[in-house]
Nucleic acid binder design. Structure first.
Lengths: 196, 196
DNA sequence: TATAATTAGATACGGCCGTATCTTATAGTC
DNA sequence: GACTATAAGATACGGCCGTATCTAATTATA
């Protein structure tokens, strides 16, 4: 029986490519993943891939968002600002954990060189997203009388994400004690200060 | 007259290569610099380069430390912790400025993927080096009664460097107002807190 | 159903990476 | 001054990048 060679198109093709990407990512990791390799695995050619994604980072992000369903973070409401912060850090840590570190570092490195990647990666580090979570936490903390100022600039709001990213990047993991230290030594003092 | 073809060796050769590296770095920037390109410019071959430096990052760092004489940072002593912090940030900002941003980002990206680069880059981000500068500042601040705690963990000490790096990475520059904000909203509150 | 517009797939290109191998100039040594 | 160890230089390799060009399969359209 002769093999029927049918030609995939559109979404079908995209699905096959993203599946292959995901598989390669699991099998070989971010660094060792190559566009040509994915193309081979998906039984197509890199021309096809380059028509859809400009580079490896975008391809991998596409696969990630399809298979690694990043559920968005949930606004913690645990009763104290301290535990709220720890809870949020835990959520972010879990997310980074799922990315296996190596992938995260690879993507981050890519992002350093291609500025436009920033938006795509906001899930991990934050900007707008983190504010949406932090602000309610801070407002509630103010109502409870834990803090007196709630209108913090972006730089302060983003501190959580920056600390975590730096931790993953310079050490390899994100231990509970590290997270405690970040909250107690840095974040709480900042938010408990009155501002100018 | 026939061209005399003499063969450079040892330090002579290294000097020529680093000169070519430096030149290429100025001319084309970090990303566009290639090992083969440097080899051509230095009229040698990449085999020779790979015998001495494992990759582009190490090569560039070697050229940087030869030509871009990073003078070490000076411990500020301006009379208040606030101005000391601003002064230190200024010094680091100047250093990053000299690296032209693009080079710094490139090196940082490389470092993300090759952990061992951490040590080489400690000048920019800090670990041991930063502590040597921060500790005297903090001790003096405590003597003056500005703060009550001086035994901060590395994570806190390194905060200065982390904030600056993040700033360079996510925005493009390191403005004075940004530095003021970092000091007033984050660093001072942290150091003025009592610790646990 | 014939024709036109898409788009997948095949192939080839110059460029770079990092490694291996071989030749040959230079330096040290007896 | 002859001999030997060392290291530079030349060349070639397979692999990947990113782009360009051509073909043929599929889908849309008239």
């Amino acid at each position: 029986m002769a093999e029927k060679k049918t030609r995939r198109r559109g979404q079908d093709l995209v699905d096959a490519i993203l599946a292959a990407t995901w598989e390669q990512l699991q099998a070989k990791g971010y660094r060792a993943l190559t566009i040509e390799g994915v193309a081979r695995a998906a039984a197509t050619t890199k021309t096809v891939l380059y028509r859809r994604w400009p580079d490896k980072a975008h391809l991998v992000l596409a696969a990630l968002s399809k298979y690694d369903n990043f559920t968005g973070y949930v606004v913690p409401d645990t009763g104290t600002l301290r535990t709220d912060l720890l809870d949020l850090m835990g959520q972010i840590a879990d997310f980074l954990e799922k990315l296996k570190g190596e992938t995260f570092r690879g993507l981050l490195a890519e992002r350093l060189q291609h500025l436009e990647l920033d938006k795509l990666m906001s899930r991990a580090n934050g900007n707008a997203a983190i504010r949406g979570i932090m602000q309610p936490m801070l407002d509630r903390a103010a109502e409870r009388g834990e803090i007196t100022r709630t209108d913090w600039p972006d730089r302060v709001i983003n501190l959580v994400g920056i600390l975590l990213i730096n931790e993953v990047v310079s050490r390899q993991e994100l231990s509970q004690t590290a997270r405690n230290e970040m909250v107690d030594d840095i974040l709480l003092p900042v938010f408990q200060s009155a501002g100018e």
